[in-house]
Write a protein that binds this DNA or RNA. Structure first.
Lengths: 344, 344
DNA sequence: GGCCAGCACTCATCGGGGGCGAGCGCCAAT
DNA sequence: ATTGGCGCTCGCCCCCGATGAGTGCTGGCC
């Protein structure tokens, strides 16, 4: 009818934009009167009602009940962020401030502080998927803790340190441990553990029996250490979401949401999606396919090391969030994290 | 009057006990009728009302409003747990099951799994204060990551591994790094960093300039690593508290509570209190002096290594919790943790 | 054809009032 | 000392009517 081809003319777009903005700002359904006041257009509420009716027909807005104003539907939000939204990038000064907040002691702390950064700045929940790591190692070392208890220290190719305790059948002397470490360090540094396993079998047939036992234990532990620390997601600032009345009105939903946070693997799947594409991605409401998130949006951006995407940062907050603020924050955080990781 | 000297005769105690038990069981104020039915005594509601009035006078119970039953006051709970409560210890089989749940890869994981254990078993929040560690080291190592970026690996006396990256002014050769590490390992293993600092100054005046720079950096980093990892509190299962209606009715209180969880230092102070005494300790309501906890109880027990208390485990839940279940769980967890740590 | 003032209509929200029921305190009787 | 009985107090729930925000529609104007 009025809006042919389901296309929005300029006026309708402007009205939708101000409607979404106003709703995001104060959380109340916005009516025709408010819209006529704030749109900048010189239209009476009555005319605006016509446009609103069209927008409702097209599924961009809806009214929670008969005599309330309209609120954006997920589709309305989608259109808003895709074509209506104007983000103002952060300025240099702010960026520099942020950069100072990132701890670069080691990867764990770096990731944790990035997550905190996100949650502090947005006052929502911050999430960071820990960087994928190569399976090789840079340095390995055995340290005798007690009889038959050996501490394995493993420095990954990325310069992170893993450690675990190995229970052995036999007792090893310190020098045997050093020797074993030397063999591994000199011949196999940089290789994956699978590869090492194959080559040790092939090349070191002559190695003493008890030595190869130690090797096997080390390799198994190494495998496990690598696989355990595979990919994880670090969340912080969940508390912030308790204050959001959009979410905390439904106690059960809120609990579902927090349960989701404990379910790392599900979250991981969602966030990994985002690491396929470049740049900031936004999941609105149930778009992610997870019920607990149906009143939430997830804003994500991948981060990279040496040009390769290795993980994802993101923010989880209510669908009614200030996207124009959150988007640049997530964007910048991803970039800062990238450069902090590339540095090492 | 009836109850002289503020002492409770047997009947009053029995009634108080069943009242608390019933209230804990179903969360409703319990009235005289219910009490007459469940106490086992053959008394009419009217007689019971007399006793209840006395109990109220003495501050053990109170009614939330005129025509509701009575609920225990903090003082009532206190008396209940101190003298009325009968805990049934867990049996061997259960303990063995629990023991299997504790990961003993390394201290961090051990502590984390203890915390999970507590929250899973009680369905409340589990807390563990990480073990105090001596400030000495067992082994130290430098690894060159890049020009002027050195990875410091530090094995504590307890066999835990700390690591951090040192930015240096000068470039060091791998052999210089090995040499530096050797000096430290051979001469100073087991000493505190303060002590090392003094002795290095005194004994190694002749050490080359750039070498002592490296030493200083290492010592500073070591100090920092030790102090950073000083004492921390690991919380898990906060989500469980969302389901407790005693707590989640007051949204603001709930938020305060969760904010407290983020405020590690405050929690630490509370939990450290507990590590003064032996055995299980219980803080009821505001006894800890923290408003956010006024509807909560904290059940704690210290754990030890070689007979010395090094930390605390605990459970935070609503005051209306099944103490007879929680207490042995906390107790056992502390003991399991003690032995798991002593093992290493 | 676009715009708009006016009007009837809907419906969530809020405050007040009445019935209900749980539980208590008191008292007189045993 | 114990107990049945009685009156009383409140919290809870439901109903109701007033209020007000916001809509859809209509008819007239440019």
């Amino acid at each position: 009818m009025a809006q042919e081809f389901h296309a929005l003319n300029e006026r309708a777009q402007l009205l939708l934009k101000t409607l979404v903005e106003r709703y995001i700002a104060d959380g109340q359904p916005v009516g025709s009167r408010a819209l006529s006041k704030y749109s900048g257009l010189d239209l009476s509420p009555a005319s605006i009602r016509n446009v609103m009716a069209d927008l409702e027909d097209m599924g961009f807005i809806a009214s929670p009940h008969t005599s309330a104003g309209r609120i954006p539907t997920p589709r309305g939000y989608r259109f808003f962020v895709d074509t209506l939204l104007t983000v103002k990038p952060l300025d240099r000064i702010e960026i520099n401030q942020l950069e100072g907040q990132l701890q670069i002691n080691n990867t764990q702390k770096l990731v944790a502080s990035a997550s905190h950064l996100l949650s502090d700045l947005t006052r929502f929940a911050g999430v960071v998927v820990t960087p994928r790591r190569s399976s090789g190692f840079r340095h390995i070392e055995f340290l005798k803790l007690a009889e038959k208890r050996i501490l394995l220290i493993l420095v990954t190719a990325e310069g992170d340190v893993q450690n675990r305790i190995i229970q052995t059948d036999k007792t090893y002397t310190p020098s045997e441990l050093v020797e074993a470490a030397n063999i591994l360090n000199q011949n196999y540094a940089g290789c994956s553990f699978d590869e090492i396993r194959r080559r040790v079998h092939a090349e070191l047939k002559q190695v003493q029996e008890h030595m190869s036992q130690l090797m096997a234990a080390a390799l198994a532990a190494g495998d496990q250490a690598v696989s355990e620390s595979a990919e994880d997601v670090v969340i912080s600032g969940e508390v912030n979401l308790l204050g959001i009345d959009d979410l905390s009105s439904n106690m059960t939903k809120l609990r579902d949401l927090f349960n989701l946070f404990e379910h790392r693997s599900t979250l991981l799947q969602l966030l990994d999606h985002s690491s396929r594409a470049q740049g900031v991605q936004i999941f609105i409401g149930g778009e992610a396919g997870l019920q607990p998130l149906d009143e939430c949006s997830v804003v994500t951006a991948p981060y990279e090391v040496d040009g390769k995407i290795v993980g994802t940062v993101g923010v989880i907050g209510p669908t009614r969030m200030a996207y124009e603020r959150v988007i640049p924050i997530v964007d910048i955080t991803a970039k800062l994290l990238s450069s902090a990781l590339t540095l090492r």
